[in-house]
């Protein structure tokens, strides 16, 4: 058996599949494609599948990573195509290879968002948005297991820029910390809704574009 890292997309209607459901869905994709993967031993064997960073529901991604273990005679080149033939709409495997890095070394996530303003986009708005994220701290209420807690999300947002797409839409490009702490890019919109409601979007959605090392190189 050998390790196999898969890069896959989760876009379109598939973005509504929760992480738990995604694990079941993946398991079935492998069975359908006839790609045997190692299962845990024990009373209730389940496939050995390690996801780099769980993706929250309603968020798209073009850079998801999952590690599995495959038979030695499987060819990395063929696996993505075989899996794609058996995948539901919106889940697309792009690459399979032997992993040489560890998920714990993923430092940042590059995410792109669409902020919809229903006709309220102006230069003024872009300035207000940029200025808001230049503040030293951005403290929002965050639900934790122990109740609602004040959290400063500013350290989690490494870079952020706003661009006008059209009269209704602002594009957001952000680099957020991937681990310790994990920063969900949705918090960017949450912070606006809580602290600067005037410039908060009427609707926001994000897509993960890339996972990044500490030194800024793309993780693979």
């Amino acid at each position: 058996m050998r390790k196999c890292r898969l890069v896959f997309e989760k876009t379109g209607r598939a973005k509504y599949i929760s992480h738990l459901d995604l694990m079941h869905t993946m398991e079935r994709i492998f069975v359908r494609a006839g790609v045997d993967i190692v299962h845990t031993q024990g009373f209730n064997p389940h496939p050995y599948m390690v996801f780099a960073l769980p993706l929250s529901v309603c968020t798209e991604s073009v850079c998801e990573l999952v590690d599995v273990q495959i038979e030695d005679d499987e060819s990395f080149d063929e696996i993505p195509e075989r899996l794609n033939e058996k995948s539901p709409e919106g889940i697309k495997f792009k690459k399979a290879y032997e992993p040489l890095t560890k998920f714990k070394d993923i430092a940042y996530i590059d995410a792109e968002g669409r902020f919809e303003y229903d006709g309220r986009v102006s230069e003024n708005l872009l300035d207000k948005l940029s200025n808001f994220f230049k503040k030293d701290e951005i403290v929002i209420k965050k639900k934790t297991k122990k109740g609602i807690k004040d959290t400063d999300i500013k350290p989690g947002i490494t870079d952020i820029i706003f661009e006008k797409a059209d009269d209704n839409t602002v594009l957001v490009k952000a680099r957020v910390t991937a681990q310790n702490p994990t920063t969900n890019p949705d918090l960017i919109a949450t912070a606006l809704r809580e602290l600067e409601p005037d410039v908060a979007p009427d609707f926001s959605e994000f897509m993960r574009m890339a996972m990044v090392f500490e030194d800024g190189k793309k993780f693979s």
Binding site: G12, R13, A14, Y16, I17, S18, D21, R28, I29, R32, V57, C58, K86, S87, P88, E89, G90
Partner: peptide
């Protein structure tokens, strides 16, 4: 939400 969007295999 997954139950409201279709797109299944």
């Amino acid at each position: 939400p997954a139950r409201y969007v279709g797109g299944e295999y």
